[in-house]
């Protein structure tokens, strides 16, 4: 690892000041699980590392006035998976975070750091996108920008977090009354691996067993997490029969764009994306109180 200067930010304003002092030559670090590895591999060689972990006020999980759940960016991923409010109101989010690596990594890795990392193989983003969660970005002088999680990821390990911005929180709405949710992770290798394919589904059947609102998002099958819009479109308003579900997920291979790697060829992942999308839909139906 090439040496650098480490600056521990004591509060947000201090962090913004450090960012403005060191600009391009600096990287932000919270848990460090991603950045330290990148620096070890020399992928990233900042002259300055700005530590965020000691910034107060960013590690709480609370209900907002409008009934959403706000998760501070410095919450560890384990904190999220075990928090009573998340377990009760956002079981899909708790489930997705529980699938990340190992308990040790989830102790270290933070919610904000994971989002800013922009790795398309991570577990939480598909769940957050399927739920319609938003990311809160802060910059100097109290400026805030709220971005749908779906729009955060712009390219391979590239996010829409702009220079001068810090991810400060995540706001997720609980799934609608009667909705079922599911997160499926296809893991043919080891339990702590990244997914070969992952799918999150949030689906609200109506009183007659027809599909109401539905959102499906996939991870590990492209340069960013991907929303299966054509499949959602095909399902909406249709009776939730096996035939209709199969027809809907048949659009998934065209929606994804996987890379060949040691977790599988692109063709294989494309096929598995369809299979796991179907399973996620069926699991979400089973988890709904209406079917």
């Amino acid at each position: 690892m090439i040496d650098f200067e480490f600056h521990q930010a004591t509060d947000l304003d201090h962090a913004f000041a450090l960012m403005s002092d060191y600009g391009d030559d600096s990287r932000l670090m919270s848990g460090g699980t991603a950045l330290v590895l990148q620096m070890k591999q020399r992928f990233s060689q900042p002259g300055h590392v700005i530590g965020l972990r000691r910034i107060p006020g960013l590690d709480s999980i609370e209900e907002t006035e409008d009934g959403n759940v706000r998760i501070g960016a410095l919450c560890s991923q384990r904190q999220v998976e075990n928090h009573p409010l998340v377990l009760e109101r956002l079981p899909l989010v708790a489930e997705a975070y529980r699938h990340v690596a190992t308990p040790r990594i989830r102790n270290m890795a933070t919610v904000g750091g994971g989002l800013a990392h922009g790795d398309p193989n991570q577990d939480p983003p598909p769940a957050l996108i399927a739920l319609g969660a938003s990311v809160e970005l802060s910059s100097a002088n109290g400026v805030r920008r709220i971005l749908p999680a779906e729009d955060l990821f712009v390219d391979y390990f590239e996010t829409d977090v702009r220079p001068g911005e810090i991810v400060t929180g995540l706001v997720a709405p609980p799934a609608a009354e009667g909705a079922g949710t599911a997160y499926m992770k296809f893991l043919p290798r080891t339990a702590d691996d990244y997914a070969t394919v992952s799918v999150a589904a949030v689906l609200t059947p109506d009183e007659e067993g027809k599909c109401g609102d539905v959102r499906i998002a996939l991870g590990s099958v492209g340069l960013t997490p991907i929303r299966a819009r054509a499949a959602e479109e095909a399902l909406r308003g249709q009776p939730l029969t096996e035939k209709n579900i199969r027809a809907a997920v048949a659009t998934v291979p065209d929606a994804v764009d996987p890379l060949d790697d040691h977790r599988g060829s692109a063709d294989y992942k494309r096929e598995m994306a369809e299979v796991f999308a179907r399973r996620a839909i069926i699991q979400a139906m089973a988890n709904s109180s209406r079917v």
Partner: peptide, 13 residues
């Protein structure tokens, strides 16, 4: 060297 560690699929893209 270090450039060899980057995956081929992403370089192709």
């Amino acid at each position: 060297g270090a450039l060899g560690t980057l995956g081929q699929p992403i370089i192709r893209r």
